[in-house]
């Protein structure tokens, strides 16, 4: 069955304390060559039937209204084969 993946990330200008805490752990564990870590969310949406244009438009609406908050976040939506 086709799957639609939505990635949600905090906008670059929004402080990401969780990503910063993970970055701190990298540093403590001696990982070098990493300058920044940002943490986001990934949604995997399994579709019954075909991914039609109408279906995609509806998923974009859900990504914008529910899965992300456009005040602080951006989303990326793609269909996985």
């Amino acid at each position: 069955m086709p799957r639609v993946v939505v990635d949600v990330m905090l906008k670059p200008e929004i402080l990401d304390p969780q990503g910063r805490a993970v970055m701190g752990a990298f540093t403590r564990l001696g990982v070098s060559g990493v300058s920044d870590i940002r943490q986001g969310k990934r949604f995997e949406i399994t579709i019954d039937g075909d991914v039609t244009e109408a279906r995609l438009a509806e998923l974009h609406r859900m990504a914008e209204e529910l899965l992300s908050n456009p005040v602080i976040e951006t989303y990326d939506l793609r269909v996985e084969p």
Binding site: L15, P17, Q18, A21, V71
Partner: peptide, 15 residues
């Protein structure tokens, strides 16, 4: 979240 007020509330900066 309802957009009755602007802005958003995010995780405390000190976690």
């Amino acid at each position: 979240e309802s957009h009755l007020l602007p802005g958003a509330l995010t995780r405390n900066d000190h976690l």
